[in-house]
Design a protein around this nucleic acid. Structure first.
Lengths: 352, 352
DNA sequence: TACCTTTACGGGCACGTGCCCGTAATTCAT
DNA sequence: ATGAATTACGGGCACGTGCCCGTAAAGGTA
């Protein structure tokens, strides 16, 4: 509330240091052309004033546009999961647009590792100032990281992490804990003599996510001395017929399966199978707030969905880049998303 | 990507309409002094261009500071629940500060209706441009709403809603559905012959929240033909001794209580009682991510906490005012928060 | 000493919008 | 027709920062 009849910002610094605003500007952006003496004096004043640049004026005056890239899997006919992060990215884009930030989205095919590498090359060649990337393939991502480091381009991982690659930030779930939560929910009302089935449906071989989740899932059983036997199955085809065939076989071999845990968003395929084969008494838990899954929640076939706010992941990922490049503020390196539990009763309010 | 070698914004409008930027400005802010003819022409051009004012430049040029008030319950020794919305408000404040928006927080005592009325008067007299308020007492809030309407001050409700008062927006849970979710979780592994106990601990009489939650809770039992008998108890003192006394009595009368549902954040008091009286086999569900409750989650005494992101509520509430007053963008009238389920396994990632 | 290069700094315009102030044009009263 | 009041509009500065361009001073070379 105290009135300050001084000038603001750069002008005030200039006045106190008996220099022009241009010189202050040079110091602020550590450009050349300032003697050590004046530089020291100005820096002292900046510190003393606790000067915070006015981002409005800064972005307004600077005509240089900052361009960010986002590289994600394309939505496929199998799952529209990745439309959620894309939404978040668009949301961030709308916010940043007026500050002179442009966003360009690149999509690749999760079933074709080559398309990932191709898009990476495209992104790198275009000379973006910052990159958001879903590191779906480990080796390609590693090369990407090296190249970014060389060019000093900050990059953010979302949805799954590859440690030790010095990303600016990771934004996504703690996968192990996520599996742990799945196990808790699955066993919450499970009878001790029943078996538990872990199902992984995926064409990819590069399944770092899956391993982490299963590891966490099993850890819960260990930590809590759950007596239930765990059966697991890998299904490398994603179409309904293949999945149904494999599951029919597993259920034939194991008569007393009381609960099933699907490690990704393809849980709706399993739900479909359970419904068609009149096995809806089996508790079913899986991942991600996509329409097909929600339909089976509504239908009482899926008991719980675990979600990690993919929309928010996209938003925060872009914002982390913005914070670094525009505001020049620090961002947290690990940004674990909440492990959300979605049921028939609360899904209508869930914000993906 | 197409180059536009035209001017931007107001200047371009002025050029196309053969007027000065000042006239365009008059139209944009619908000030007087423009003939109907030119006004129409300019408006047409604005529409055609889909003109979006540059908020940076706008806020920079306008020296008028916008001041917002937030009126919430003070944190008491009984619960620090309200520190979460306050955090969100501070977060919003930090973001808005550079755009010339000031925020002032007013606190009242939930146990003293008078302090609420006093603070309302203070806020209204100070002439804020927008107000965020937790409408804890119905009648006082009603008067407040009338006064705001008269002065054309937008106001936002958080945490609980009072319908039909024409608030700019409500940001908080759908209380009925929240109780519904509580019932789902409570009964998920409940044996049919067990009784269920609803506990309301509160000094206040004005308990609109509580009624909605209990209503939703019971609705679940109806909708799903749950056979369990429901017992309920109101406890008007909040200290441990009083709560323990009442609960001892209830548990004495009802030997077969299998689960308890506490309608607010005081569930930790009940948890304490259950632990002390060696009744931890009773499932316990309550509200809010406050430290005491989380401790009992960790300790396996509380099974689930239901939360409504109070931090986010504060943030979004302030942002709704910002959107209206600064950006002049529309805000959604109903903004139901997700009904989050917090357990021992996922609480460490929960973002309150 | 005369000339050139480098260093160190100031002047001043631009960004897009808000808004004060001045004035030509129109209307009205006499 | 003359003056006053009102209406309709333009000129131009300000907001705080970025940055181009110009130039005086210092240092270097012959």
């Amino acid at each position: 509330m105290e009135k300050e009849n001084e000038l603001f910002g750069v002008k005030e610094i200039a006045r106190r240091a008996n220099v022009s605003t241009a010189t202050v500007d040079r110091v602020l952006h550590n450009r050349t052309g300032v003697s050590e003496k004046t530089k020291a004096k100005i820096n002292a004043i900046i510190k003393e004033m606790d000067y915070q640049p006015n981002i409005l004026a800064s972005r307004l005056a600077s005509k240089k546009i900052i361009s960010l890239a986002a590289l994600l899997p394309d939505v496929s006919e199998e799952t529209d999961f990745w439309s959620a992060p894309l939404n978040g990215i668009r949301r961030a884009e709308a916010e940043m647009k007026q500050y002179g930030v442009q966003v360009q989205v690149f999509l690749f095919d999760l079933n074709h590792k080559d398309s990932f590498a191709d898009q990476i090359r495209l992104v790198l060649d275009a000379g973006f100032h910052g990159i958001l990337i879903s590191p779906s393939f480990i080796e390609e991502t590693r090369k990407f990281a090296v190249e970014c480091a060389r060019r000093k381009i900050p990059y953010v991982f979302i949805d799954s992490d590859i440690p030790d690659l010095h990303s600016l930030s990771y934004i996504g779930p703690h996968l192990r804990k996520s599996g742990y939560v799945g196990a808790k929910l699955l066993t919450y009302r499970l009878e001790p003599e029943k078996k538990v089935l872990i199902i992984n449906i995926s064409k990819e071989i590069d399944n770092y996510n899956y391993l982490e989740i299963e590891d966490g899932f099993r850890a819960y059983f260990n930590d809590n001395n759950q007596p239930n036997e765990i059966v697991r199955i890998d299904i490398r085809e994603t179409d309904y017929q293949s999945v149904a065939r494999h599951l029919t076989y597993v259920f034939h071999l194991n008569k007393d399966i009381g609960a099933a845990f699907v490690t990704n968003s393809r849980v709706h395929t399993v739900a479909s199978f359970l419904k068609n084969s009149h096995r809806t008494h089996v508790s079913l838990i899986g991942y991600d707030f996509v329409r097909e899954n929600v339909d089976y929640l509504e239908d009482n076939v899926i008991d719980f969905l675990i979600c990690h706010r993919p929309d928010d992941q996209g938003y925060r990922g872009m914002m982390a880049l913005y914070q670094t490049l525009v505001v020049n503020a620090p961002v947290t390196k690990q940004n674990y998303m909440p492990i959300d539990i979605v049921t028939k009763e609360n899904y209508e309010f869930y914000q993906n």
